[in-house]
Design a protein around this nucleic acid. Structure first.
Length: 427
RNA sequence: GUGGGUAUAGCUCAGCCGGUUAGAGCGUCAGGUUGUGGCCCUGAAGGCCGAGGGUUCGAGUCCCUCUACUCACCCCA
């Protein structure tokens, strides 16, 4: 291994050609899903003003406190590579006057997001998210639609053993009261909880509920659940949500330990869990964020959405042996055996491509045997072979690589052979 | 930021208690008679054994340091 060779930065990966069939398949299923549900594409910049995320995602969240890629540009503006899509989506909604569009405004985006974390299985510093947001309506049926987008995507991909986790974390009206109750409860159990939970109790009490330490489990189990302390509005909303889910026959688990890490969530929060992405299990997470627009300086505007990590989706597909369509090889491979034959081949290949037929040729003057080996490796359906004797007759051998049949056709027939569909090669 | 594991060919990995020219499979390239792939056979190319230091007559192998990768925690997609 060369010593001073460059490597990609830590936690940043290449998506190699052999991985591309997975990506293409996921992307095509995503496109079909958003089409069915009537979402419009929104492309957002890869970086934004730092303050957008500080305010939108929230000071005190791990993302803002320790995971952002932040730098100043040449005019000393603080810039941050996007760590998620929701804040940017809301910014674009407000900036572009989308409030004047019929509500809800339904948008989707996809692309890389960046978080400075220690990489591990299913976690990278650059990963790709598929993001869906519906802005401008509080109807719980819209929460359910958002969840259905995720549901449909994973079903279409053929996932098994999916589990929907649902909770409501209330709103600015009822959450403070709940947090108080939770803190009071925990005060009686400080000696039983882990060190991290000691800190959470001070800093971010909601997080107490998703601690994984064994010693904390009994305390969590007996903790007062948020859903029982929701205000009237949140309670009605959550009840309606569950009614819709039941109506649709969607299996879900009421998980009152599901709290999620971003400040902007209100009412509905949900995740979809798949199994075996290393220690990670969430392929998707989202919820409602009715307070976000105001935090960003806009008028009160409710919204609901989710993000799903494509790398985790693909890991799950591999884990579950999901079938994916294979990317076809070239339709034809051209093999010339002499310099003069090569000139004819180059011209013929150009004509084929003009006619929309995918073709490749062999380079570098190797033996015919090597050419056929290469054609086989590349998955070519047909090989055109041109040697001296064919050249003198202005004809060319055409070989079907599946059955091996071969015959000779005239130069002028080549393009039409492929244009008019397969035509049998066996004579 | 905190722990554990690993580092030998392009890839996946052998290499026993330290001992001579460092191995396999896959992949690549070439050949197995006249211009024909897949299977099979043969051969070749390809390694300062992650870096630096130490112990020793002798280190891929033992010790120390560093680095990278990896898994896990925190947290998240």
């Amino acid at each position: 291994m060369a010593r001073n060779q460059f490597r990609s930065p830590k936690g940043i990966r290449d998506v190699l050609p052999e991985e591309q069939p997975y990506w293409q398949h996921v992307e095509s299923v995503i496109r079909e899903t958003v089409r069915l549900f009537g979402y419009d594409r929104l492309d957002l910049p890869v970086f934004e003003e730092t303050a957008l995320f500080q305010r939108g995602v929230g000071e005190g969240t791990d993302i803002v406190d320790k995971e952002m890629y932040t730098f100043t540009d040449r005019s000393d503006t603080s810039i941050t590579l996007r760590p998620e899509f929701t804040a940017g989506t809301m910014r674009a909604y407000l900036q572009n006057g989308m409030a004047s569009l019929p509500k809800p405004v339904k948008l989707w985006s996809a692309g890389p997001v960046f978080r400075y974390e220690r990489p591990q299985a299913g976690r990278f510093r650059q990963h790709t998210q598929f993001n869906v947001e519906a802005i401008g309506d509080q109807d719980p049926a819209l929460d359910v639609e958002i969840m259905s987008v995720a549901w449909h995507l994973y079903k279409s991909l053929g996932f098994k053993n999916l589990s929907f986790q649902v909770n409501s974390i209330g709103c600015a009206r009822c959450r403070p009261g709940y947090l108080h109750t939770l803190v009071v409860y925990y005060k009686d159990h400080v000696k039983e909880i882990c060190d991290d939970c000691g800190k959470r109790l001070q800093k971010n009490p909601l997080r107490l509920l998703d601690c994984k330490q064994d010693q904390c489990q009994p305390v969590i189990r007996n903790a007062p659940p948020m859903v029982e302390m929701l205000c009237q509005e949140c309670s009605v909303h959550f009840h309606a949500l569950r009614t819709y889910l039941d109506e649709l026959g969607r299996p879900y688990q009421l998980n009152n330990r599901l709290v999620r890490g971003l400040d902007y969530y209100t009412k509905t929060v949900f995740e979809v869990w798949a199994q075996d992405i290393g220690a990670q299990n969430a392929v998707c997470g989202g919820g409602r964020y009715d307070g976000l627009a105001e935090v960003l300086g806009g008028p009160p505007t409710p919204g609901v959405g989710f993000a799903s990590g494509l790398e985790r989706i693909i890991l799950t597909m591999k884990e579950q042996n999901v079938e994916i369509p294979q990317v076809p090889g070239p339709r034809v491979f051209l093999a010339a055996q002499t310099e003069s034959a090569n000139r004819v081949i180059v011209r013929m290949l150009s004509d084929l491509r003009e006619a929309g037929i995918a073709g490749v040729m062999g380079f570098g003057g190797r033996s015919l045997k090597a050419r056929l080996r290469e054609a086989n490796r590349r998955g070519a359906r047909y090989v055109l072979i041109l040697g001296e004797s064919e050249l003198s007759r202005k004809r060319i051998q055409i070989k079907n690589m599946q059955g091996g049949e071969q015959r000779e056709i005239a130069f002028e027939e080549v393009v039409s052979f492929f244009k008019e569909g397969d035509g049998s090669v066996s004579s």
